[in-house]
Design a protein around this nucleic acid. Sequence first.
DNA 1: GACATCTAGTCGCACTGCAACTAGTTCTGA
DNA 2: TCAGAACTAGTTGCAGTGCGACTAGATGTC
Lengths: 199, 199
Amino acid sequence: MTTTFRRSPLALAILSLLENGPLHPYGIQRLIKQWGKDQVVNVGQRASLYRMIDRLAEADLITTSGTDRDERYPERTTYELTDAGRAATRQWLAEIVSTPRNEFPEFPAALSFLLMLTPETTIDLLARRRDHLTRQLADLDTAMLAAARLPRIIMIEDEYVRAMTRAELSWVESTLEALRDGSFTWDQEELGRLAAASQ
Amino acid sequence: MTTTFRRSPLALAILSLLENGPLHPYGIQRLIKQWGKDQVVNVGQRASLYRMIDRLAEADLITTSGTDRDERYPERTTYELTDAGRAATRQWLAEIVSTPRNEFPEFPAALSFLLMLTPETTIDLLARRRDHLTRQLADLDTAMLAAARLPRIIMIEDEYVRAMTRAELSWVESTLEALRDGSFTWDQEELGRLAAASQ
DNA sequence: GACATCTAGTCGCACTGCAACTAGTTCTGA
DNA sequence: TCAGAACTAGTTGCAGTGCGACTAGATGTC
């Protein structure tokens, strides 16, 4: 059944974690959180996790490998990787890493309609964003410091996220400055005339 | 009916474009493409556009404002903003701009499972990504040059996208270098021991 | 005259996100 | 010691989205 399974971050995470041996659904979720991967893989929605596991099993990328019997907990079905699953993991990783893909995040979309607001309102909003980003950056730094003794590959995604957050913060700060010193501004009238002219 | 409508980049784009007067669905799509906003708002899926317009109308954020009769084309229903729609636009803009939100893009997710691959494979994949990013950056530069005489607010989202693309490219390049000079590497055995130890 | 492209819109499914609900277990502080 | 919080473990349902395919007339192009 080469019913080409559509790739997704969650599917990738499940398959990758099963590389280290059979596991039950809840264990997968716990592992993702334990390793801090919940910052980059959305396992907050447990419903999605269980449904994804079902579909992966249906597509024979994973199979049930028995049940985990622990006195304290109800019976839990464990799953393990198939060869097809191992192959899919590698292919998805290669595709994602080698080829950037526009996922249409909401912030740039909102930016393109900023002209609906006044420059003053924009200053206020961007200042709040700057504060959020500053806090996120600090949190990332402490997380990275805590794991500084681990091999670099373990935290490589945090390095990336940090670089991106830092870049966004820089952009927000420089844009804020231009708005504040008046070198970057706009008004409805001017833009209205422009829109009329381009008809 | 304040059935709080869930915000989305597409809904925001539709509402924002209707600020300049009534328009029919296809006209909205064309406007988005004309202004190059299709880089940040996904209107490639026309089905989504029509469905979104229907839902916006149902929620009274827009209403039909008659039909546009052009000899050459079939009759087209035009839509216009309601006051509720105008308010929603402003609220969404404020929320999105002021508060960063994790949308779980696939690249960082894939990075966190890179350890499945060998450093050599990773070099190859990242090199291909670097090439893509380099091309995207060049395209952005020509687009921005072409619009250099327009007010800055018109292209503000391109400035942002450019800054982010530039930052990602830098990160990829520096990571590639570390991989090539051997200062950043890993092997399954070492990681296997680590995983076993952390059980 | 054939084929491509643009205009304009519809159908349907597979998947995702979000919220709520169940139900047992273990921890924690008044 | 007993209530309530927090964790373990999983299910149900719906609204929203992405993606692909299909229709069908109009216009352009070799």
